[in-house]
């Protein structure tokens, strides 16, 4: 810090180092301790003015001021918050529960009935056509226990 700068800081902020800019306070203190004569006159003059400034009393609020402000504010409407640009409403993605509810919800029965009728007709056709042999002498397993659980890994 130059002597010129320290004189400028004293001229601006006065003699009390606590009021000086944070970044320069340490360096200024060191300079003044090294060479107090560097800014002696400025410091003395600033100290005299500071003493006067310190003696100027601050205005204190009158006792009823806070209550008056509260009463006035209570009767005052607030401004509206700034409106943000409305985002386009996203298409709702139904959750699992919503889908389940939709599936179970009562609705027209004709699609279900049509499907059931088609399945029954197909079964009747297969049975009557003899494509599948239901002869009891065939090698069908007689019990569930005799089933050989095969490897379905290639199928599934």
């Amino acid at each position: 810090m130059s002597e010129r700068r320290i004189r400028h800081v004293i001229a601006a902020f006065g003699s009390d180092l606590r009021r000086w800019p944070d970044k320069e306070r340490g360096e200024a203190r060191n300079l003044l301790m090294r060479d107090r004569a560097a800014a002696w006159e400025e410091l003395a003059a600033a100290r005299r003015l500071d003493a006067r400034l310190d003696r100027l009393p601050a205005l204190t609020p009158t006792p009823g001021l806070a209550a008056l402000i509260l009463a006035r504010a209570a009767a005052l409407p607030q401004e509206a918050a700034p409106s943000r640009p409305a985002a386009a409403p996203a298409a709702p993605v139904p959750g699992i529960l919503a889908r389940l509810r939709d599936m179970l919800a009562p609705g027209p029965l004709w699609p279900q009935l049509a499907g059931l009728t088609a399945a029954a007709a197909f079964g009747f056709f297969i049975g009557m056509s003899g494509i599948v042999n239901f002869d009891s002498s065939s090698n069908m397993p007689s019990s569930v226990a005799s089933y050989d659980v095969g490897d379905f890994s290639g199928v599934l």
Binding site: A58, L59, T60, P61, L65, I69, Q78, E79, A80
Partner: peptide, 30 residues
């Protein structure tokens, strides 16, 4: 109040400024 007092130099004006400033806080808060 102290700041306004230093700025305008008298109580009546300072307290009017302070009232106005605090009402602005309320009004513009949103």
């Amino acid at each position: 109040t102290a700041l306004a007092g230093r700025m305008v130099g008298n109580r009546a004006d300072a307290e009017e400024v302070v009232q106005e400033a605090f009402l602005r806080v309320w009004k513009t808060a949103p």
